[in-house]
């Protein structure tokens, strides 16, 4: 029981570090993200630095801890490079490019109470529930 409480406490801390990272790197600003995605315009490489930092730390951690990435959960993306991986990722990319919000920054931005975020997050939840009914059919 006690160990479960401390585990949850550290998961709260992990969520907090994640949120702090998103705000500090300004990935919670859709304009910044969209400027990264605008390769034809005034390109802003900030997002690449964020990804580089995150990937470097995670990869180093895996090496130090001698761990592999955990198994994928059974319900999605079981097989390596499937049609659903490509189609789903393309749909995600289009949604990301429309608003400049992906799931982490969208949720982190709930505290702004901006109408765009208050529309986006419930719509994302609906989308996930739709995908679930669709996917469990086959």
């Amino acid at each position: 029981m006690k160990s479960n409480v401390s585990r949850l406490f550290f998961l709260f801390v992990a969520g907090g570090l994640f949120g702090a990272g998103l705000v500090i790197s300004e990935m919670t600003n859709p304009a910044r993200v969209l400027a990264f995605l605008d390769f034809a315009g005034d390109w802003d490489p900030t997002l690449a630095f964020v990804m580089a930092g995150a990937v470097a730390v995670f990869a180093t951690g895996l090496l130090i801890l001698k761990r592999k990435l955990p198994e994928r959960t059974a319900d999605f993306s079981a097989e390596p490079i499937s049609k659903s991986l490509i189609i789903g990722s393309a749909m995600f990319g289009i949604g990301w490019g429309l608003g400049g919000l992906c799931p982490g920054p969208a949720i982190a931005n709930l505290g702004t109470f901006a109408k765009e975020v208050l529309i986006f997050v419930p719509a994302m939840a609906v989308g996930m529930l739709i995908a679930r009914t669709w996917k469990t059919r086959d």
């Binding site: 799931p103 989308g127 739709i130």
Partner: peptide, 22 residues
């Protein structure tokens, strides 16, 4: 603002079918 409804739907469906996000 309504564009974010469409964007959210696409992100929700897409990340589940594709098995992950950023």
């Amino acid at each position: 603002a309504w564009l974010f409804g469409i964007a959210g739907l696409l992100v929700g469906v897409g990340t589940r079918i594709g098995g992950g996000c950023t």
